[in-house]
Every structure is written in structure tokens, then in C-alpha cells.
Simulated assay, not measured.
Amino acid sequence: MLDPFFAPIPILVETVKPLCDYLSLKSLPLHIHEILFAFGFYHFIFEYLAPPISSFFLPKQYKRLSYESKLRWNMHCASMVQCCNITVLALWTIYSDNERRNMNLEERMWGYTGAAALVQALATGYFLFDLVVMVRYLDVFGLGMLAHASSCLVTYTLGFRPIFNYYGCVFMLYELSTIFLNFHWFFDKMGMTGSKPQLYNGITLIVVFFSCRLVWGAYSSFNIYRDVWNALHFDRSVKVGGTEEMMLFAGERSLPMWLVVMYMSGHVILQALNVFWFGKMIAAVKKRFVKAPQQNGIKKKV
């Protein structure tokens, strides 16, 4: 399926092509304009759109926030727009891209479609923006968020070799849970901690997080592990097939061990973090809505 975004800008393509060729990011020049667009779009929201809109619609809540909390608020605004956009686009691509749906092993590993690469490019642009913000405000967001932004950016950038282009949309569905996580944070800052809307959102957050990140994530990770295993034992002298257009950037169909180790270890760590975060999430919701037992009018610690 063709990339539905506007056509690449020739001067940008020619500018980045030598570096991309050197780094073996063969398909990146065709999507550099989308990466830069996404970066600029989310930077504009964070820097210039979220503050005045929040001040206008929520003057009391926003203005009483500390400097650090305002930065986090603005970041959550950008995150909310991103997770809504990218999940809709990923779902649309999964549903509409027939070429992607019918990919064989070779195509899932080294294949390329413009629509799937668009999802990858917009995600890369957001993670680039995320990294810049984390570096600028490291004292606010901390090393953990910096590491998260860095790893996501590296992972999605390396996808332009191309490698795992098929799975870019798959793992972007994790972002469905981020929508409700952002709402949960906003409720706290708006003085709605313990309210019914936060309760309903918290229940939805737990259900969606469990479904998207633990169930869907484990299933998708198993699929990518299986594909990598089969690709490592694949006889590249035998042509399985695949359309010429989808395999345009496949080249030698190489699968360096460092790339395998990085991707696989990253998925294992992320799945472990998802389990950890799920436990923390349940604890956070429980803390807000489950009252501690009392003895003689005194709350008992649990």
C-alpha cells in the first residue's frame, strides 16, 4: 500500500541519503519529511499550543501548577495527541493494507510498504521530539524517561533498514493504553482524585493495558521471536517469493546478530516492564479508591 502522506521533498531526500546509505537506513530518505513533520508538530503542541489552550479552558487548574508540573502537563498533551493519532493510523493500516496483511516470512522481516513506513516515520518523529524534551528537562523527567525515549527512537529508526517494517504498526497499538494513562494523570492534577470519572477511567486503563500490552504484546512478541528464529535458519539461496516492490530495499536480507540481540532483549525488557507497570497501576488505582480499614476511628495501615 502506498504512503498516503504527501510526496517526499527531493532536496531533503538528497541531503540525508548519503548518511542513510552509510547507516544502511535505505528507506529513511523517503520518509524524512514525515519524521520532521511529526517532530515539528509535537514540538509546536508542547511549546506553543498546550500552554495557552490549557490556561484558557482550565485557568485555575493550570496556573496553580508548579513549573515542573506544567512541563509534565504540556508533555501529556503532546502524548495524548500522539497516542490517539498513531493508534488510529496503525489500526487503519493493519485493516487496509492488503499487501502488508499477506506478507510471507521474508516480507515480514525485510519487506516494505509505504503505509506501514508512514506509521513508523510518525512514531520516529514523536520519539525524536520526546528525546529532545527529555534531554532539555532531564532534571524534571529523569534518566528513566530519557532511556525510554532513546531506546524507542533507536528501535524505530533502525526499522528503516528496513527490518520488521511489518511489526511497526503491531507494537504501536501499545499506545491505546497511554490514552487512559494520560487521563488518569490529568484527573489528579485537576483535583479529581478519587472521583467517579477517574474510577471509570482507571478500570478502563487496567483492562486496556492488560489487553494491549500484556495479552496482545505477548502474542506479538511470540510472533516476532518465531519470525526471527525462522529467518536465522532461512536458506537465503532459495527465493521464497515476494513482490519486487515490497522487497525493493531488502538487499542481501541480512540479519546481523547484534540487531537480533538488541531487538529481542528490548522486547523481553519491555514485556517485563509492562508486567511491573501493570502491578504499579493496580496499586495506584487501589490507593485512590480502596479505603484503609479503621480501628477505633484510626486508619490502619495496609
Rank of each mutant, 00 (worst) to 15 (best):
L36Y: 02
L270E: 06
S221I: 12
N296P: 00
H43G: 00
T193W: 10
S151T: 14
E175T: 11
V16S: 02
L65I: 06
L49K: 01
Y225N: 13
N102E: 14
A272M: 07
M281D: 10
L143D: 01
Y62I: 05
L214F: 07
V238P: 00
L273Q: 06
M103Y: 07
M281G: 14
L143V: 12
K60L: 11
F210D: 02
P162M: 01
K60N: 13
K280G: 07
V81M: 10
M103C: 09
Y263N: 13
N104M: 12
A90P: 00
E252A: 15
I86T: 00
T178E: 02
R64E: 14
M1C: 11
F5M: 11
L28N: 03
Y137R: 02
L199Q: 10
R64I: 13
D139M: 10
N104D: 15
M246G: 05
F249C: 04
E68D: 15
C169G: 05
I163M: 12
G111V: 02
S69R: 15
E107D: 09
G111M: 04
V302I: 14
T124I: 06
G266K: 01
L138N: 06
T178V: 09
A250H: 02
V261Q: 09
R161F: 09
V260N: 06
F183I: 11
V228I: 15
G125E: 01
R136Q: 15
H233K: 14
F234N: 11
V154M: 08
A218L: 14
H43M: 08
L71P: 02
S96Y: 08
I53K: 01
I203M: 13
I206M: 08
E175S: 11
H43K: 05
W229N: 14
F164Q: 03
K286N: 14
E252Y: 10
F210A: 11
L259A: 13
C212V: 09
C84L: 15
L89R: 08
I11Y: 11
H76Q: 12
L2Y: 15
G194S: 08
M262P: 05
L153I: 04
I179L: 13
Y48D: 10
D21M: 09
A284L: 13
V13L: 04
S54K: 02
Y200H: 11
A38G: 05
V13H: 04
L259K: 07
A149F: 07
Y126R: 04
I86S: 03
G40T: 05
F127H: 05
A121F: 01
P51R: 06
L214Q: 07
K63E: 14
T204C: 12
T204G: 12
N85I: 15
R64Y: 10
I163K: 08
Y137A: 01
F249L: 05
H31T: 06
G241L: 05
E106W: 09
A123L: 13
M247G: 02
H76D: 06
M134W: 00
H33V: 04
E34C: 09
